[in-house]
Design a protein around this nucleic acid. Structure first.
Lengths: 357, 357
DNA sequence: CTGAAAGCGCTTACAG
DNA sequence: CTGAAAGCGCTTACAG
């Protein structure tokens, strides 16, 4: 019903006394390149458009081969979750800001697939098809689906590093490896040798990156046998026994893959009467780039969530402009260090230094 | 390029030895109603689809079919602002949840208008037209624009009561008036007579509603001359002098239009050495429906932001289903009271009661 | 039951 | 410079 009321390109063409081709060319700004259309005609077309309140039909435009100026945003978790300070917020801030700059609207895929979950393909149909391209994010991603999307040749950028067997998908990632290496080197310089890397059981790319940074730093100090110094466990395993056990075995610093685990150690250490950094040093391998979330003085680095979102959009637009362009499609954004108060020389060394004096 | 590689409905029709119409009917499950298609034919079609890995082109489907299953979301401020606990969040949570249930995707209008601001009409063209209908929200709305949208007959629902000269637009609002009346009646029942209503200078619909609730409550107690008891000022005007002045003039309770102002009073009262509710009672006329935002024990009510968002989508869908349906388009959602510790009998009354004993 | 055909609203060669 | 026309891939009356 509404559709019939809505003016079409034909109406505009008729009103302006030209053909639809001219209207199309004028609208899309192709009136300067190969095809010349008189300024007066262009003015008439724009006037008719304004007068009729004409807006192109996106479906038709896309079907005919044009662009939609719409970028899809697909997340494997709700986009607007109930929790405050949610994980997605900073990514989306970056995406939105950049979309406004680059003149795109964002289509949020909120529809559930028939099975009630969140999937890109519904009954084998790529839901993102209505957009020029999409930004994907989420920690619960379906890799088979991503692989298919890649093979289908649909333009998309993942926020976060993801390596698929299907091939090198485009992504923007945080420079976990370098930041981790930097942080661990600091510990090494302070004299620590037995630094324990405490990860979570799930080993995704960002965990791999941090572990790689850890290994590089340790290797630079000649410590290569790390089998004993890299462990993976759940947060609730991090109790007093855990702490005491490792300290007794000579560990002087803990590198926690996740901030939540580091906060847990902070808590346990105060329960157990350990002073930080007197009894041991503590670093967390990353923290949300959100000033309102406190990291309680733990030495760590900021993950540039917002910039990852913004750069994902920039990268996607570059790909859309020229799908075959030979530009880097895997972008890593450096993390910035966030100095804290939880690192210092290992327990022994301070005494040693005192004796020297 | 990608497009040409993908099989179309024609390819499937050819492979299955039928027409595209049959393929379409089979795919869309219309093969059982009016039109009968033999089981064997259906099987052949599905087999061909599987074999070719066919998936329908959404743009073509939309163009031929009409609906887009896309609802626009337009806000007069950024949707993903930098601030945590932002104002829009709960509305959007409700909208997203409901969109998932009702099987709609959401198109966020992030594109800036040529003047750099946020407007529905760009160069006189309604940007929302690409959607089936839209949800609008924001405190900075452009009423002239809304009037035009209404006159254009575009289906939309505003989140928050808005009354335009142009006519009755659809909205979902919070029941400020009733909640305010309820809260003020409680104060009256406790013996307060001189209750000061402290509003902000901007009088929009929600301010009007609260003031109306205040007047109703006061009138029910026979207090009709309220000229002296309703004031409007900025938060920074609420200092110690303000408080002392009104208390000296016999005010025993303060009804603050906004929570921020109430929190300010709380602060000032402790600076000035006033005990609450011993020296005076304090209520705030509404608080975000967000459990993480503390209201410091102030008596108030919860504004159902999330439900307002959800119901806006429900209302919009009802309008889309039947644009001429005779359903109520102005929906008010009740607020729930949030009992606090800042109200009690007025200073005099307690003494008075004691004397009676 | 099934096929031929119109049409959704646009873009883009292709002629003038 | 401008117009007539094909075609994007689908859905849906409308004939058989």
């Amino acid at each position: 019903m509404r559709r019939s009321q809505r003016p079409t390109q034909q109406d505009i063409a008729r009103a302006a006394g030209v053909s639809t081709a001219v209207v199309s060319l004028v609208i899309n700004g192709r009136a300067d390149g190969k095809v010349k259309i008189s300024k007066r005609t262009q003015e008439r077309v724009w006037a008719a458009i304004r007068e009729h309140g004409y807006m192109p039909n996106l479906a038709a435009r896309q079907l005919a081969g044009g662009r939609t100026n719409i970028i899809g945003v697909f997340t494997y978790e709700p986009i607007f979750p109930m929790e405050p300070n949610n994980f997605y917020q900073p990514f989306l801030v970056g995406i939105e800001e950049q979309a406004a700059v680059l003149d795109y609207n964002l289509l949020l895929f909120t529809r559930l697939s028939p099975d009630g979950g969140r999937h890109i393909y519904h009954d084998g149909v790529n839901q993102l098809q209505t957009t020029d391209g999409a930004i994907l994010l989420g920690t619960n991603e379906d890799r088979a689906e991503l692989a298919r999307l890649y093979q289908d040749g649909f333009p998309f950028v993942f926020v976060g590093r993801r390596e698929l067997d299907a091939g090198p998908i485009a992504y923007t990632a945080a420079g976990y490896a370098d930041a981790t290496e930097h942080l661990i080197r600091k510990l090494l310089e302070q004299g620590h040798r037995r630094i324990l890397y405490v990860g979570q059981p799930l080993i995704n790319e960002s965990a791999q990156d941090r572990e790689a940074g850890f290994r590089r730093a340790m290797a630079s100090a000649g410590i290569d046998d790390l089998d004993e110094l890299i462990i993976r466990c759940q947060i609730h395993d991090l109790g007093g026994g855990f702490l005491r056990g490792w300290i007794e075995r000579g560990v002087t610093a803990f590198a926690m893959e996740h901030m939540a685990a580091a906060l847990r150690i902070l808590e346990v250490s105060s329960e157990e009467g350990y002073g930080i950094p007197e009894a041991f040093s503590l670093v967390a391998l990353g923290k949300a780039d959100d000033p309102t979330v406190d990291h309680r003085g733990i030495d760590t680095f900021f993950i540039p969530h917002r910039e990852m979102g913004a750069q994902a959009l920039v990268l996607l637009c570059r790909i859309l402009e020229d799908p075959d362009a030979d530009v880097p499609r895997q972008i890593t954004i450096p993390c910035t260090l966030a100095a804290g108060r939880t690192t210092g020389p290992p327990p022994g060394s301070r005494v040693a230094r005192k004796e020297v004096r």
